[in-house]
Simulated scan of single mutants.
Amino acid sequence: MTIAPERPVALRVGRDLVSPELFDKLAAFCADEYGLDVEMSARVMNEALAFLWTMGTTGKGDVMAPSKAVDPAWHAFMLHTQEYTTWCEEHFGRYLHHAPNSKTRTLGLMSDVMAAITEAGFAVDRSLWGFAAECNEPACCSDGPCC
């Protein structure tokens, strides 16, 4: 016999990992700094926070990378050095460093990162986790093997 849960379990969202005021401040900065519209900026900030939480709580930072779309939100948070440092220390007991390597954005890695974020209980906006393999030659997206 199968027993269905009384109500579905809601997935977590990255934006809930910071105060609403800080989220709005970071999303607005990301929009201004990287030329994103407000809605897109909020979406990428949400994904970046879920990514950072997953990276910080799993200890898999050496095998995780943000997508090209999500990376600017991590940069926006890091540029708010006091808030970023405090958040990292409070949640992980250490600073989460960013070691850029755009050549690692592959289908396998992005799939692994999305799976890890999902396993951590977060909803994932799959459309923001694109990778170089989505390029159609001869067009080039500038961050992978199709270039």
Rank of each mutant, 00 (worst) to 15 (best):
G61K: 01
G61R: 02
D32Q: 15
K68A: 12
R94Y: 10
S19W: 05
W53I: 00
P5T: 10
D71C: 10
C141F: 01
P5A: 14
M40Y: 00
M45E: 06
A116W: 04
V63T: 15
C88N: 05
P20Y: 04
E83D: 15
F77L: 15
V38L: 03
T81E: 15
P20T: 04
M110K: 01
L128A: 03
S67Y: 02
T86A: 15
A28Y: 02
G61N: 10
C88M: 06
G61L: 09
H91C: 01
G61V: 06
Y84W: 09
L17S: 10
M64Q: 13
G108S: 14
G59M: 08
M64W: 10
V18A: 03
D143V: 11
V18I: 08
Q82A: 15
F131R: 03
V13A: 11
E119W: 08
A120M: 13
F122S: 02
L52G: 01
E21I: 02
F77T: 07
S102F: 11
C30A: 15
I3H: 07
Y34H: 15
N136P: 11
G14V: 00
L79T: 06
L52N: 03
L79R: 12
T85S: 10
I3Q: 06
A31I: 04
R12P: 02
Q82I: 11
T58A: 07
L17I: 01
A115W: 00
L11V: 12
A133R: 06
A48I: 01
A99V: 08
M78P: 01
F29G: 00
L109R: 02
D112I: 02
L49H: 04
Q82M: 13
C88F: 07
F131E: 02
N46W: 05
L79Y: 09
R105D: 00
V9E: 15
E39P: 00
A99P: 02
T2G: 02
A27D: 00
S41H: 03
A115H: 09
A139H: 12
S127H: 07
F51G: 01
D71E: 14
A4E: 09
M78W: 09
G108N: 13
W53H: 11
A28E: 04
T104K: 05
W129I: 01
P5L: 12
K25S: 05
H75L: 12
E21K: 08
F29Q: 10
A31Y: 03
H98I: 08
D37K: 06
A116E: 13
D24T: 12
A65F: 11
M45P: 01
S67G: 01
I3N: 05
E134D: 14
D62I: 09
L22K: 01
A115M: 05
N136K: 15
S67M: 01
L128P: 00
D16H: 09
S127W: 07
T57N: 14
P66G: 03
A132E: 04
H97P: 09
G59F: 08
N136H: 15
M55Y: 05
M55G: 08
P20S: 04
T57I: 10
T118P: 10
M114Q: 09
P100V: 12
Y95D: 12
E90L: 03
A27F: 03
A4F: 09
L107A: 12
T118Q: 14
E83P: 00
W87F: 11
T85I: 04
E134W: 11
T54W: 04
A120D: 07
A132C: 08
F92K: 04
